[in-house]
Amino acid sequence: MDAIIRTEGVSKVFNAGLADEIKAISAVSIEISRGQITVLKGPSGSGKTTLLGLIGCMSRPTEGKIFVEGKDVAKLPERFLTDVRRKTFGFIFQHFNLIRGLTVMENVMLPLYPTDIDGGQMERRMEEILDKLDLTAKRAVRVEKLSGGQQQRVAIARAMINEPAVILADEPTAHLDTKLSEDFLNIVTSLNTEGKTIVIATHDPLIYEKPYIDNIIEMRDGAVKEAALL
């Protein structure tokens, strides 16, 4: 199977050399297959969010190699790491991380502001995504006035605006009830059928017990406990 992301012996140490040194993950080697849904499963503190951040080019590993589309990004300076991230990944955060005071449209387009993409094209993309996620009616509403489910859809829309190949979601259902969690999974599966690679870090059985999950990587204490191809 074609791996879009591959890690080799990746470790991440926070506050290295200090008294509060934390070894978040150590010697993790995994593969994320293109076009599939992969779940990083594990209890909190197992290192799954750290791993998600590393493969999403949020930060650099202390050791090891990370290949994104075949290119080793482990030693890239931040400037170029950001560039890879902008072009490849869309992030859905646990706390949505929308900017209050801005409208739905503004929040969704925000990732593209610093890019050289043409304004008209940016708006067309945004309209299309809002339409798909049923947010068109709320486009001019400030995000803090939206319900939890709507906020998450805005977060998803924002993750999609740069047309990423991979969508990464960190504990996406932690703040949602069952109905909204199911809605989220429906959106994700439809994105997957469009060809997007999906990686979800979660400890919610509602997600990892779904039959259409392709791979589960189980983590514990900063290491891979078990990787299963379902």
Binding site: R79, D83, R86, N97, I99, L110, P111
Partner: peptide, 16 residues
């Protein structure tokens, strides 16, 4: 601080 954190997270570069 949170806002700048979000901007960084969604793909804004330090220079931006």
């Amino acid at each position: 601080r949170r806002e700048i954190g979000i901007l960084k997270a969604i793909g804004w570069e330090t220079a931006d």
